[in-house]
Write a protein that binds this DNA or RNA. Structure first.
Lengths: 153, 153
DNA sequence: CCCAGCTATATAGTTCGGCTATATACTTGA
DNA sequence: TCAAGTATATAGCCGAACTATATAGCTGGG
């Protein structure tokens, strides 16, 4: 009954390898030198709203110093801006700017175009499966989850 | 009528972000310092058989010098070995060792365990979708494809 | 009301993966 | 047999992300 030998191995590790390859394909195809962490962070700011640096670092899964530096670059490029946290003057709230949203959208278009050959000629059924798989993955990797089960580091 | 707002945007770029997050989650959860390129390369050697350095570099989507260096480390750890190419003394054939296969398997188990919480409590239907999605992705990111449409660099 | 201890961000310094440019060794065809 | 091309190796650089630590601000018990 089971002619799908590939199913013999659980999917998580196969998914990781495939994800890895996809990431590599996209990076090479777009030729973008911008680190993935930038797009990860911007998309988190877009969906989760403004956040403190520490919290953004946690959700983006990098350390706080890494995020501080990342933020500095993004601020220079005016893709994000800092709002003083009135309740705590040590902290900043980081928010995405319209320019940041535009950059994110442009990147998405670029990635979409770069991956077009890879996903060329998918059947309607295959597209449907990928669409639904993405939805599941998005739900399962939701950034808000990180906050509750942190303490990893 | 359309409550699936997420479907409004095509999946490739969403898939990239999700893939990226998964990679990050896996990397953090395993705490592995081993670069992804190692596992990518080893799994290519496992599925595609022994390859020249240049060809392995292409399929692993790194440059040749990067692969040369990577190979040196893997050889020291005895995860791969070099076979002199009888037809061309400039070239080497790189092959995975039993120890390399074992390391790859161990990593897979580790990643599987690390991602278990992320994929906990999936319904049978969701699992089915992910399984099939992985199969599609594997097919679409197959390394042998790279060789034919290279010339990117 | 003030200081010890905690928390939020910033800075310093290191490590390491991956890249480009180039050298070296070998092959091949005219 | 040698010029041009190809396969791998070496050198040097860049930058992302880490750990350790400094600085500044908050907060509660005495």
């Amino acid at each position: 009954m089971n002619s799908h030998l590939s199913s013999a191995r659980p999917f998580p590790e196969r998914l990781i390898v495939a994800a890895n390859r996809l990431t590599r394909i996209a990076a090479l195809a777009t030729g973008s030198t911008t680190p993935a962490s930038v797009w990860r962070s911007l998309s988190i700011l877009e969906t989760d709203g403004s956040l403190r640096i520490g919290e953004l670092a946690r959700r983006s899964r990098v350390t706080q110093p890494t995020m501080t530096k990342l933020i500095q670059g993004l601020a220079e490029d005016e893709l994000i801006y800092r709002i003083a946290d009135v309740a705590d003057s040590r902290a900043w709230l980081i928010a995405i700017t319209p320019k940041g949203t535009a950059a994110l959208d442009a990147w998405r278009v670029e990635v979409g175009a770069a991956l077009a050959p890879t996903f060329e000629g998918l059947s309607a059924e295959e597209s449907e499966i990928l669409e639904r798989a993405v939805a599941i993955l998005e739900e399962r990797t939701e950034t808000a989850r990180v906050a509750t089960r942190d303490e990893v580091a």
